[in-house]
């Protein structure tokens, strides 16, 4: 435009700058919905919590429930398993964490059953399963051993099995998520 060239330079620069900036912001704002549409959608997020009844799980037994399409291991731990978990010192652990910090009530262990290495499901839920060298869980994919607190003790996994957010609704029911 011929008008623009006659404007004082500062005003023209300001207009050009504002125009460019607004274009950039507008493009970003238009692209964001496209990117965010790939994030978990509303109906997926709706299945975010699950309630578990603990009444039928005997000591030494485990239950697998599905939470957010992930398996969650609920283990009713025996006295021996609790002791084993408590005895491990910081030295033994790859990802040091006290057992007491991982279980709201010591006899119940609730963990996400997905190996922290590359997302496989560790064995150890069924009676005949290989539970690894530490009596907890064993990941058959790349050989990670977890102890009775679900902590990584040996193998390639970097972190302990995740404890999901959960609370006791009463003595026999928990709400995960």
């Amino acid at each position: 435009m011929s008008d623009a060239s006659q404007d004082p330079p500062t005003r023209r620069d300001f207009l050009l700058l504002t125009g460019t900036a607004m274009t950039a912001v507008g493009t970003g704002a238009a692209v964001w919905p496209l990117i965010d549409s790939l994030s978990p959608s509303a109906e997926v997020l709706a299945l975010a919590t699950v309630e578990v009844n603990l009444a039928n799980i005997e000591a030494g037994q485990s239950l697998t429930v599905v939470w957010r399409s992930k398996p969650v291991f609920v283990r009713h731990r025996t006295e021996q398993e609790i002791n084993q978990a408590a005895q491990a010192t910081e030295r033994d652990l790859i990802d040091p964490e006290a057992d007491s910090a991982r279980a709201v009530r010591p006899e119940w262990l609730v963990i996400v059953g997905i190996c922290t290495h590359l997302g496989c499901i560790p064995l150890g839920q069924k009676t005949g399963d290989n539970r690894g060298e530490f009596g907890g869980w064993f990941c058959p994919c790349h050989g990670s051993h977890y102890d009775t607190s679900g902590r990584i003790r040996k193998g390639p996994a970097p972190k302990n099995l995740t404890v999901p957010e959960y609370r006791f609704l009463d003595d026999t029911r928990i709400l995960i998520g």
Partner: peptide
Amino acid sequence: ATVITNLFSAIPLVGEGIVQWLWGGFA
């Protein structure tokens, strides 16, 4: 797919978020 997409969870801080974004879900 699970193993390879989980590679991105190794990225510090934003890894988990990126993986869920790739999946469009929790798995």
